[in-house]
Design a protein around this nucleic acid. Structure first.
Lengths: 205, 205, 205, 205
DNA sequence: CATGAATGAGGGTTCATTCAT
DNA sequence: GATGAATGAACCCTCATTCAT
């Protein structure tokens, strides 16, 4: 028999797990079909549940995407967590710095092929307010923080713009890296880093 | 009354014009709504024709997108036509070269905001075979040609890869440039060029 | 070949006819199933068209109900049109007056069994703002006008209230009259008139 | 610990209480939303139980409505119980008689706003067989009994019909009375009584 | 060729009901 | 008995496409 406390917690745990499973399924389907062509029924089926059940956890298709994006944000933040510790940022070699930032991000993207489907949603009403918003800003903030240390000569607006450019580059090249066959991936990553270095080097104090 | 010969030709000419008008309308609607959210009826209405008529010229919505992409390819090719004339490529200053290539492309993208809606279609079934394929390869070929002249040390596969990287960068940053308010566009373009130069400089013979 | 003027008019005429057919079908289905249980697909099927076609004429199920209510209003107004001519209202015998008002209304309700399904929609959000609103106010206004002539002693608020009572009575008894087998209908109508007369006689100047 | 005999009885008592609570909740929700728009989950939530539990007491949504109607019938019967005691019916003043019958009924309706939601259900398949059936017949029988005393000249069928008319009137006007702001209620009730008296007076022996 | 009404499969979502715990 | 997650049929509505005129 369950203790009075254990029951709700277990219930909740089960719910959390289900939500997670649904998001896993959604990530897979979004990755394969894109956001618009993805059916909620397809997501439900991929999650092994009925369409009705999906709506017990998420109010709408959009809410699923939102939650998935949120989860990606959290996961990504965790994925490269200490990479941005400002402690040794100043002294580090530029190449090392780039490795430290890029490698976990690439690993994350490779491990989460559904990510890009939400990261760049093109069919959204207003210009930039996609579900990717939070993800983007998370990255942006960190890159800006790095620039503040490594390129102190930049004015605030310049720093913001440069950060945006770097994130943009990363976003642009990531799909190619992810889509590349495993044995070419390394080479693609090298190119990505070259681009970043080429842009960063002149700024680097 | 029309001559027996003139009639078909005129017919054809009228048809061409109609197709062009439809594509104009499609470009506008795609630009505003994105590919998936665009309805064929909306395109027909924007073109001032009936839905049935649209299907007299294009087999499907996809075919409209395809044709539009093709037209963009041709227009773009024309837009920067002689920029790639190999004559003086070898001797030119790198910054000048970049200007020569980038400026017309940017101008084209600014003038054709519908372009990017097809250029980066995320909801397409197979990995990369979007309607943008032809556009991309057109660009790719030219960039490769330039690299062949400016970076003769590169092996063929390296050249291909580098060209792809350059095109990728361009594609990634173009939407930002296009979306930027007019008075900031110049600055965005400068950043784009910085990125390209940063990547190209080490390769440049 | 159609004249330039005839074409749009004929088109429009066809559209009007279709709308009318849909409303006929809707009236039948509403009458049989009630508003909530009525399916738009059922209405379309009853009208001999596809679900999609229905939506070419009406934006939503609600819009169908609205249009039907409007049509009923117009038809009903026409049905007893001159019955309310104020000319001879003053001199007329009370029983005759009641006959003049009630008979056409009853005939209308018998001929339009779908009417009551919209006339008293219980599942609508706000208290009284159903599609029947206009119908009710149409009747109300006319009854008030009659009272102004026949019961000049009533104050304006009293007149309004009395009119509402009369309309209420009529609404309440109409479903019974309509549902009654043909050979009992006459008797039911007599009762209805008795009720009305019983309420009106003391007011009648 | 419960005695072997007490247990089942207590169980049953608890069950009765639960059922009653559910019906309370149902009455409230039906009153607010109407029958069709009311969800069983909403009723369960309002009753503070789970959807599954609701179905332990009632076979279906319809069964809940039925039981609620039954309970209303019983309550109403009790509410005006002795009002119909035939003892002094014959001698009573007509106005007094009406007061005696109407006042408790009005009070009951005011106190049970959910009543009317079931009393006049429009979306029911067959002509008249709504959940209100029993309620109606209960009232009907009593009114008929009164008429038998007060209007002995009426034939049996006439009596039945007249009773139905009276009940109909009452039903029609009750929603208005209930919905009226408190300070206008009295006036509405007066009108209702006027209607009833106007119809009854000629029949009254 | 043009038209635009017509089509109908399918999408997102709801809700009465069931069932494993 | 109680729970509440799970179910799945069905609803309203959209839109790419067709076809009679």
């Amino acid at each position: 028999m369950e203790s009075e406390e254990a029951r709700p917690r277990r219930r909740q745990a089960r719910g959390e797990r289900r939500m997670s499973e649904i998001l896993d399924a959604a990530a897979a389907v979004f990755a394969e079909q894109g956001y618009e062509k993805t059916t909620t029924n397809a997501v439900a089926a991929a999650a092994g549940i009925s369409p009705g059940s999906l709506y017990q956890f998420f109010r709408s298709k959009e809410a699923v995407a939102q939650a998935l994006a949120d989860r990606f944000t959290v996961q990504m933040r965790a994925a490269h967590g200490e990479a941005f510790a400002p402690a040794d940022l100043a002294a580090m070699d530029l190449d090392d710095l780039i490795d430290r930032v890029v490698d976990p991000l690439v690993a994350f993207n490779v491990a989460n092929p559904g990510f890009k489907a939400l990261f760049a949603r093109p069919d959204m009403p207003p210009g930039l307010a996609t579900a990717a918003g939070p993800i983007q800003s998370a990255l942006l903030g960190r890159v800006e923080a790095i620039l503040a240390v490594r390129a102190p000569g930049l004015s605030a607006p310049e720093r913001t713009r440069s950060a945006r450019v770097l994130v943009q580059i990363f976003q642009a090249m990531t799909p190619v890296v992810v889509a590349a066959p495993e044995d070419e991936r390394e080479a693609e990553v090298r190119e990505l880093k070259k681009v970043l270095r080429g842009y960063l080097a002149p700024l680097d104090g």
